[in-house]
Amino acid sequence: MSLSWLHMSIIIFFISGALFAAAPFIASMLLATRAKSPALYSPYECGMDPYGSAWTKFGINYYFYALLFLAFDVDVLFLFPVATAYADGAGLVPFVKLFIFIVILLASVIFFWKKGVFTWPKRIRF
């Protein structure tokens, strides 16, 4: 597959976005002051010396939301190609098919709601 102007424009725009963001950093490197002090490089923790590393285990409450997102995002993505062709479809068949698809999506929301995924603090029953 050869590159069309569309692909070229996306690539050019993306790279120039990165360059546009990098330019002020270079200006900053040339212009900015250069102070040195051990306190300057310490991570901010309300003025204290940091207690332990930030790269530790911490409870991600959002794990189930992320899983839900994955499921929904893939499903919703299927609807985009359908959207362009839906109006051309003859009769009620396209509507019935989409109706089933969307009602299942809706039912899954209700299912997770009943399971307690949306209740804080987390109490998920399986």
Binding site: S28, A32, T33, L40, Y41, Y44
Partner: peptide
């Protein structure tokens, strides 16, 4: 002002 500020990388970053 932002351009004139030092770029600081925190110690553990």
């Amino acid at each position: 002002k932002l351009v004139g500020k030092q770029l600081i990388t925190p110690r553990g970053a």
